[in-house]
Deep mutational scan, measured.
Amino acid sequence: SEIVKHAEEALERGEFVRIEHNGRVIEIRNEEALEELRRWVEK
């Protein structure tokens, strides 16, 4: 997914991403959060 790709690229640069999706906000700061995002987006 485009969202996950964006988050992965930001993590590689040492940045973090805040994503709003279906009214929820998730902050991607590490691999664990990235995995959570993947599960969340796939639903």
Score class of each variant (00 low, 15 high):
Lys5Gly: 04
Ala33Asn: 13
Leu34Lys: 01
His6Asp: 06
Arg39Cys: 12
Leu37Arg: 00
Asn22Leu: 13
Arg24Asp: 06
Arg38Leu: 06
Leu37Gln: 00
Asn22Ile: 05
Glu35Lys: 09
Arg18Val: 15
His21Phe: 15
Val4Gln: 03
Glu32Gln: 12
Glu2Lys: 12
Asn22Pro: 00
Val4Leu: 14
Gly23Val: 00
Glu8Cys: 13
Arg24Lys: 12
Gly14Leu: 04
Leu37Thr: 00
Glu35Tyr: 02
Phe16Glu: 10
Glu42Ala: 09
Arg38Tyr: 03
Glu35Asn: 11
Ala10Cys: 14
Ile26Arg: 02
Glu32Tyr: 08
Leu34Asp: 01
Glu31Phe: 14
Leu34Arg: 00
Glu20Asn: 05
Lys43Gln: 14
Glu9Arg: 12
Ile28Phe: 03
Glu20Tyr: 10
Asn30Asp: 13
Gly23Cys: 09
Asn22Phe: 13
Glu15Ile: 08
Gly14Tyr: 02
Arg38Asn: 02
Arg18Asn: 10
Ala7Asp: 02
Ala10Glu: 02
Glu15Pro: 00
Val41Lys: 01
Glu15Thr: 03
Glu31His: 14
His6Pro: 02
His6Asn: 10
Ala7Gly: 01
Glu2Ser: 12
Glu27Tyr: 10
Leu37Ser: 00
Leu37Val: 03
Glu8Val: 10
Glu32Pro: 04
Glu35Ala: 11
Glu36Ile: 11
Val25Lys: 04
Arg39Gly: 08
Glu9Gly: 07
Glu15Ala: 05
Val25Gln: 05
Glu36Trp: 13
Arg18Met: 10
Glu20Trp: 10
Glu35His: 07
Glu15Asp: 14
Lys5Ser: 07
Ala7Asn: 02
Glu27Ile: 14
Val25Ile: 13
Trp40Gly: 03
Glu8Arg: 15
Arg13Ala: 07
His6Met: 15
Lys5Met: 07
Val41Pro: 01
Glu2His: 11
Ser1Met: 13
Ile28Gly: 00
Glu42Lys: 08
Phe16Gln: 13
Gly23Asn: 05
Val17Leu: 14
Val17Tyr: 09
Leu34Ser: 00
Glu12Ile: 12
His6Tyr: 15
Leu37Lys: 01
Glu32Leu: 09
Glu20Asp: 06
His21Thr: 07
Ile28Val: 12
Asn30Val: 04
Glu20Gly: 03
Val25Leu: 08
Lys5Trp: 04
Leu34His: 00
Val17Lys: 01
Glu32Ser: 09
Glu32Thr: 10
Glu9Val: 07
Arg39Asp: 08
Leu37Ile: 03
Arg24Ser: 08
Glu9Asn: 09
Leu37Met: 02
Lys5Leu: 07
Gly23Glu: 02
Arg13Asn: 11
Trp40Pro: 01
Glu36Tyr: 08
Trp40Glu: 06
Glu15Gly: 10
Glu2Arg: 12
Leu37Trp: 02
Ile19Ala: 04
Asn22Val: 05
Arg24Ile: 13
Ala7Phe: 05
Ile19Lys: 00
Arg29Cys: 14
Val17Met: 09
Ala10Asp: 02
Lys43Cys: 14
Arg39Ile: 09
Glu36Arg: 10
Glu20His: 08
Glu31Gly: 10
Glu27Leu: 10
Glu35Val: 07
Val25Glu: 05
Val4Arg: 03
Arg18Leu: 09
Glu15Gln: 07
Ile3His: 06
Arg18Ala: 12
Glu15Tyr: 04
Ala10Trp: 05
Leu37Glu: 01
Glu42Phe: 04
Glu42Tyr: 05
Glu2Asn: 13
Ser1Leu: 13
His21Glu: 03
His6Thr: 11
Leu11His: 03
Ile19Asp: 01
Arg38Asp: 02
His21Trp: 15
Gly14Pro: 05
Glu42Val: 06
Lys5Thr: 06
Ile28Glu: 00
Asn30Met: 04
Val41Trp: 08
Ala10His: 08
Ile19Leu: 07
Val4Pro: 02
Glu36Leu: 10
Lys5Arg: 13
Ser1Ala: 13
Glu27Lys: 04
Arg13Leu: 08
Arg29Ala: 10
Lys43Thr: 13
Arg18Phe: 11
Phe16Ser: 14
Val41Ile: 12
His21Val: 15
Ile19Gln: 01
Phe16Ile: 15
Leu11Lys: 03
Glu8Phe: 09
His21Asp: 03
Lys5Cys: 06
Arg18Tyr: 11
Ala7Tyr: 04
Glu2Gly: 10
Ala7Lys: 01
Arg39Glu: 09
Phe16Arg: 12
Trp40Asp: 04
Ala7His: 01
Trp40Lys: 03
Glu12His: 15
Ala7Thr: 03
Glu35Met: 08
Glu15Met: 04
Glu20Arg: 06
Val17Gly: 04
Val41Ala: 07
Arg24Val: 12
Glu32Ala: 13
Leu11Ser: 03
Ile26Leu: 09
Lys5Asn: 05
Gly23Thr: 01
Glu32Met: 10
Lys43Asp: 13
Arg39Trp: 07
Ile26Ala: 01
Ile28Gln: 00
Asn30Ile: 04
Glu2Cys: 15
Glu31Ser: 12
Gly14Ala: 01
Gly23Ser: 03
Arg24Trp: 11
Ile3Val: 10
Phe16Thr: 15
Glu8Tyr: 09
Glu35Ser: 08
Glu2Gln: 13
Glu27Thr: 09
Glu36Val: 09
His21Met: 15
Glu9Tyr: 02
Leu11Val: 07
Gly14Arg: 02
Trp40Arg: 04
Glu12Ser: 15
Arg24Cys: 15
Ile28Leu: 04
Asn30Arg: 03
Ala10Lys: 07
Asn30Glu: 04
Ser1Asn: 12
Glu20Lys: 05
Glu35Gln: 10
Arg24Gly: 06
Ser1Arg: 14
Ile3Thr: 06
Val4Ser: 03
Glu31Leu: 15
Ala10Met: 10
Ile19His: 02
Glu12Thr: 12
Arg39Leu: 08
His6Glu: 10
Ala7Arg: 01
Glu32His: 10
Gly14Ser: 01
Glu2Val: 11
Phe16Lys: 11
Glu9Asp: 10
Glu2Asp: 14
Arg38Gln: 05
Arg13Asp: 06
Leu37Phe: 08
Val25Asp: 02
Ala7Gln: 01
Arg13Lys: 13
Ile26Lys: 01
Glu9Lys: 12
Ile3Tyr: 05
Leu37Tyr: 05
Glu15His: 07
Arg38Glu: 03
Ile19Met: 05
Leu34Met: 06
Gly14Ile: 00
Glu36Met: 11
Ala7Leu: 05
